[in-house]
Simulated scan of single mutants.
Amino acid sequence: MTQKKTIVVSGCCGTIGHALLQSLATLPQYTEVLGIDNNESGLFSLEQEFRGKFRFAFGDIRDGQRLKVLFEGADVVLHTAALKHVPSCELAPSEAIKTNILGVSNVIEAARNARVERVLFTSSDKAVNPTNVMGTSKLMGERLMSAAQASARRHETGIFFSTRFGNVLGSHGSVFPLFQQQIAKGGPVTLTDPDMTRFVMSTRDAVSLVLESLELAQGGEVFVSKMRALRIADLAAVMIDCLAPRYGLRPEDIAVNVIGSKPGEKLYEELLTEEESHRSLQLANFYVILPAFLDLYGVEYTYETAQPHEKGQIYRSHEQSLLSQEEIAAYLRESGLLPDGGA
């Protein structure tokens, strides 16, 4: 994509949407950026932060007609808006359907209408063998994007694809700000299960996945970053050691309470299913999951340095080489989540 482009970011007030705006501000290939969200106060804050550099508009992905208006003239759409919290989706599945499934369908239809060149959907590793409504809705979003690509082949209306994130440390509602708040109050820090493991990424990692896959995508794929894995108990221990002194507290005085797993919560996450492993490729930084019904797409998927993925290798977080507490501390500082000079 060497020609200058107009790009739309849905969910621009969220952690990933905001981080994407900050990166796009440094990229000269985008002549115009439009941020869309249904958070009025958040949009006002972004307008103050970027001071006329970008345009912002109030809009909800549940409103397909509004999206058709907002997507007019767009070359690229980065769709990050979603309901992302497992408990809220579990308690109100109909709302998750409206946003995470019907909302994706609205984005696809509006993008087709505007003849957008590239449409990216941000998914989650919870879409792999989902055990909850949120993960199931994200899996359906991925399948809608792949189906949109099959239709795009017939109508020549662009490239549709997905990226699959792990747990983005520091994002709204993630465990990092929760632990930080609990430590600041003197504890206790609450753990669901001492053996729980997760794939993690920083906002910087997430933005890199989005922007790099945007260049690589050929249609219908799911791009998955090769992520670090850690034990949540180790993350809590590192944060207590590093942050307690900054609040005038002693780490040994911060209690850790085990409260048990939440309904629908896995002890570990997976990056891809066994079935997906049979149609995946490996790049230096990514796994690329190709569409299941390749004959529908008419694409010969070729990427530089791509290697066939080992069939049956599904990468569960608890089976990986987990980061040590020292490595977690270094990663958090590198990601800007802890100040330099911590424990």
Rank of each mutant, 00 (worst) to 15 (best):
M201H: 07
I254F: 04
R246F: 04
L209G: 00
G219D: 05
V222N: 03
L235N: 00
G220D: 03
I259D: 10
V258Y: 12
S225G: 15
V207H: 02
A229V: 01
L209M: 12
E215Q: 15
M227A: 02
D193E: 13
T203E: 13
S225T: 09
R231A: 04
G219N: 06
S225I: 11
E215N: 14
G219M: 07
P188H: 09
V256C: 06
P188D: 10
V210M: 11
M196L: 12
L235D: 00
S225H: 12
L249W: 02
L243I: 09
G220I: 01
Y268D: 11
F223A: 06
V256F: 02
D241R: 15
M196N: 03
V222W: 02
E265C: 13
L272P: 01
I240Y: 04
E269M: 07
E270N: 12
G219F: 03
E221C: 08
V258N: 14
A217K: 11
G248R: 09
L216C: 13
T197D: 02
G264E: 05
S202K: 03
K266D: 12
P188T: 10
A237D: 12
T203G: 10
G187Y: 01
K185T: 07
K266Y: 07
K226L: 14
I259T: 15
S208T: 14
